[in-house]
Design a protein around this nucleic acid. Structure first.
Lengths: 153, 153
DNA sequence: GTTGATTTGTTCGACATCGTACTAAATAGT
DNA sequence: ACTATTTAGTACGATGTCGAACAAATCAAC
């Protein structure tokens, strides 16, 4: 009986991996967004979070690259954040083509509140994996991500 | 100096994890879709793949649940597959409300070709992780996914 | 300096995703 | 049997995502 149900070895393994990643992404996104107010969506939060972790004043293009999304998508996300008063878009004094994205006090406050409201969800699932396992998973995924990133031309 | 940049311990760890997962999902999706013909999109492939791995003749609702997407999204995905002749939608003889999704020969052929065209991409990144690491990552993510799944209500 | 190429960001159009409201079929309660 | 509830699927509208085309600023080459 020919092996038609199974994908050849290695490729199949990565299919499985990306499939799990896709489903977890789906699940985490859905439960994140359920906690966020009205029209806020995961990328809104993620951008704010990134601006705090890394640094304020990044350009839209830098942000688009950090998240591996097209710059048009980032434009849209930033427009939503600006409309809600969570970021300020100032033009870059060093390069009039580009802009800088700065967090407002409201933006920082929003992040704190979002995190607080999300923590219970994290707590609920945190018994599935040990802290060591989560840490290990992160470093492994970071390695994979960087490899994938450098592979795209 | 107060700790405003760092998210409290555990929650921050999961943020990082989900963040990496999100980016990898982004990257894998983009490179998958680049290989697929015209208007085909990742969910199209994923559904076909699932029908082969598990079994033909699933109902749309079963598929929606398997991928954790709303049933309206699955309706849309299946409509695309049917339009392209990759699946047949027959009405369920046991329950006139529901339908069954059956793969066509063209659907199976499409999957084989898609996998073949994707393999080079997998090969290119496969040196980042050992097979054992990928396997370990999968089992860990499966555990997480199942926990998240059982946690939603 | 002037011209052509590159970079940054936006607008626009196409399409995917998903919540709401609906129809039809099945099931439960009486 | 009859009605109410539940379940499967769809139509529709709102919004997110993203590729193509564009405008403005910068850079490179001469």
């Amino acid at each position: 009986m020919p092996d038609t149900n199974t994908v050849p070895n290695l490729t199949g393994l990565y299919f499985e991996l990306f499939n799990e990643i896709g489903i977890i992404n789906q699940l985490s996104r859905t439960s994140f967004e359920a906690r966020l107010p009205d029209g806020m969506v995961l990328p809104h939060f993620t951008v704010i979070n990134h601006l705090i972790r890394v640094q304020d004043g990044q350009t839209p293009l830098q942000l688009a690259r950090a998240f591996q999304v097209p710059k048009t998508s980032m434009t849209h996300t930033l427009a939503g954040l600006e409309k809600r008063g969570f970021v300020d878009m100032r033009s870059n004094p060093d390069d009039a083509r580009s802009k800088q994205v700065w967090l407002t006090a409201a933006g920082r406050k929003f992040r704190q509140e979002a995190i607080a409201s999300l923590s219970p969800d994290v707590a609920e699932i945190s018994d599935a994996l040990s802290v060591e396992e989560v840490t290990a998973a992160i470093s492994l995924l970071v390695r994979l991500r960087k490899r994938m990133d450098s592979a795209r031309d």
